[in-house]
């Protein structure tokens, strides 16, 4: 059975991509596929910010993704260099700081889907 890697490159606030990734993950898991990793790169690292404060009627897609990953034991990684450049020194605890090298290595046995 196919194992998937997900790469997200856009901000959770600026597009629908996180929502699409969430839907993809749910559908994949329900169908019995495994997800090897979700990697946040470029502006997607904003999802890992510790102090996100959204109005109650706006979905916190990064947090939803973090919960999904926690429940299903999926490594949710973000690029530390991309995060440092954006001033995020101490991101939320559900997100794992990693390098592009780790993303590259985990990619070996999985099919990549980009959002």
């Amino acid at each position: 059975m196919t194992t998937f890697s997900l790469l997200i490159t856009t901000s959770p606030l600026a597009s629908q991509n996180f929502a699409s990734a969430l839907q993809f993950c749910n559908a994949a898991l329900i169908s019995g596929y495994q997800i090897e990793q979700i990697f946040l790169y470029q502006d997607a690292v904003f999802a890992a910010a510790a102090d996100i404060d959204l109005p109650a009627d706006e979905p916190n897609l990064g947090q939803q993704l973090a919960i999904l990953c926690q429940q299903n034991h999926i490594p949710l990684l973000y690029c530390v260099t991309a995060a440092e450049k954006r001033g995020m020194l101490d991101p939320g605890s559900n997100f794992i700081g990693a390098g592009l090298a780790e993303f590259a290595m985990r990619l070996t046995n999985s099919k990549l889907v980009q959002f």
Partner: peptide
């Protein structure tokens, strides 16, 4: 800066023999 971030990604992937 997308080009630069794509370049970093390219090199990281190549470094692990993809």
């Amino acid at each position: 800066s997308g080009g630069r971030e794509a370049l970093d990604l390219t090199l990281a992937l190549a470094a692990v023999e993809h």
